[in-house]
Structure formats: C-alpha cells, structure tokens
Simulated assay, not measured.
Amino acid sequence: MTAVPGTASGATAATASGAVLVLGATGTVGGRVAARLVAQGHRVRAASRRAGPVDGTEAVRFDWYDPDTYEGALDGVDRVHLVAPTDSATPADVMLPFLARARARGVRRAVLLSSSAIPAGGPAVGQVHEALPGLFDEWAVLRPSWFMQNFTGDHLHARSIREEGVIRTAAGEGRVAFVDADDIAAVAAHALTGARAPGADLVVTGPEALSHAEVAAVLTEVTGRAVVHRALTYEEMRDRLAASMPLEYAAMLAGLDRANAGGAEDRTTDTVLRLTGRRPRSFRDHVARAMQSVGAGAEAGAER
C-alpha cells in the first residue's frame, strides 16, 4: 500500500483550531474517536440523534434526515468524522447535501468511515467516497474490515454466541482480517488531527485473516464456552438479517458475506502500524480484553 503524508511521529494540528464534529459519537467507532480526541486535548462536538453525553465533549443533536439539525452541529467546526446512516442503502442522498453545507460553513477536512468491502463509486457509502476528494482538499476514507466487536458487543453475532453458542454466516470458509474498533479509532484520530491529511483511501485490518470457524475456535479457547460456526446460504442469511432491518440493506450485508466466501476480505494491511506506530490488536487479545471488561458493561453494537 502506498505511503501517505503524515505518520505516527508527525506533528498534530493545533488544538486551538476549530472543533472536530464526530458523527455517530455514541456508536462503536464514533465513541472511541471522540474519547481519543478529547484525551489528546481537542475540542469535540459529539453528534447523535439523542445528543447523549460523551465525557469531555459538547453534545449536539444530529439527524441525517432532519436538515434543521445541520447548522447547530456544524457551528465552530472545521473537521468532521463521517459515519453514514445505517438504515439506508443510498446514504449519498442525505450525506452529499450535508457535506456541501459543511464545506460552505468552513469545514476543511473530512474523514469518512466506509468499509473495506466498498470501493469508491461502489454501492451505499461508496458514492460518498467517490465524491469526497472533490468536496474537500483535506480528506481521508477509512475502509476497515469487519469489526471484532461483532462477536463481543451487541451485534447479531454476539447475541447468538451468548444465547446459543453459534455464529451464523454465509461466508463459508472465507477468511476475514477482523479489526478492533480501538485500532480504527486510532487511525481516524490521526487522519483528523495530523498536520497533513492522508488524502488517501486507507484499508484498515487486523493482523491476521481468520475464517468464522477459526473465530469460533478462539472464542471457545478463551471463554471456555463451546462456540461453533454454522454456514448459511445467501438467501438464509438475507432473510435472517431482514428480521431486524430493511430487506434491501439485509440483502447487501448478506451479499458481503457471500463475497467473503470467495476471499474478498482475505488480506491484511499495515495501515494501523504505519499511521499509529503500534501493531493492531489480535482477535485473541480482543476477546480476552472484552472478557475483562464485561463487568463494566457491554460495548456498543457494531454495524459491520
């Protein structure tokens, strides 16, 4: 992967600049990004539909489907961490008008959380990815692999693991380089605050690619509870997901599983190490860490 401007040892943008708007600030990645930026001394506006409190931030209400919330969220902001609405297969419909308004209000840097499975110009948030470099001189698109938190948080997989000891996917024996949300947030914080924006498409992975059967084996070894992977067809996975989300979105996610069966996610990158200076967390270490924090409450659910 081509090197990008700015490294873990580079200078960061001055904290005296405008605030960073973090969309989805109560979510799996957004919450971690907000907390990391606060710890680094940056002013953070934490946006969510309910404007819930995030320690050390300015909580603001933001709803992609309510343009009346845009102006308040953008007040005093010069950088934005973008998380697409999770209930739409065509997020560009609402995101692009918001980004045009953000640019007009003085936002100079935008970092988009996308997906390793969706290239520029691809479906869903891929349309926003394609448009971003034309909207902002300073930009980055983070394309993380599937979240480790999907197996330990409040995702469908995590619930079926806890309730039944089963992971159901249409991914077959395909391997995925699952990544910890903490590592994604570390990359995002660097992209938002580095002296120079990456200006690049960054695929973010964990250190190894695992099949879901191997994931189940690690969970079994670390937790001491038997976990197995049960392979579904594309149609079975689509219908299972459609019980809790719109059919079009369920079909897209099931399609990503099917692509994984064909090896679409069977690769690793050095993005985390190159931008943050530390190696990404392994899945075994993630599970052990999640077990230690169970008493402190369940993690927010992941979307990928």
Results as ranks from 00 to 15, higher is better:
residue 268 T to D: 02
residue 248 E to T: 11
residue 266 D to P: 09
residue 221 E to Q: 14
residue 263 G to N: 06
residue 240 R to S: 13
residue 251 A to T: 10
residue 218 V to R: 10
residue 265 E to F: 12
residue 253 L to T: 01
residue 248 E to K: 09
residue 230 R to S: 07
residue 260 N to W: 11
residue 218 V to D: 10
residue 216 A to I: 13
residue 263 G to Y: 05
residue 266 D to K: 11
residue 238 R to S: 12
residue 235 E to A: 14
residue 226 A to S: 14
residue 228 V to D: 00
residue 250 A to I: 01
residue 254 A to T: 03
residue 250 A to N: 02
residue 241 L to F: 10
residue 248 E to V: 14
residue 235 E to G: 01
residue 223 T to N: 07
residue 259 A to K: 15
residue 229 H to R: 10
residue 260 N to Y: 12
residue 230 R to A: 10
residue 239 D to R: 13
residue 249 Y to C: 10
residue 223 T to L: 04
residue 225 R to M: 10
residue 260 N to Q: 13
residue 248 E to Q: 11
residue 229 H to Y: 09
residue 264 A to P: 06
residue 262 G to F: 04
residue 263 G to L: 05
residue 237 M to F: 08
residue 227 V to L: 04
residue 231 A to S: 14
residue 225 R to P: 10
residue 242 A to N: 03
residue 256 L to M: 15
residue 256 L to C: 02
residue 236 E to T: 04
residue 268 T to A: 04
residue 221 E to N: 08
residue 253 L to G: 00
residue 229 H to A: 12
residue 240 R to L: 15
residue 241 L to D: 00
residue 232 L to N: 10
residue 227 V to T: 09
residue 228 V to H: 08
residue 219 L to E: 01
residue 249 Y to H: 12
residue 258 R to E: 13
residue 230 R to P: 02
residue 246 P to F: 06
residue 241 L to M: 09
residue 258 R to C: 00
residue 254 A to V: 02
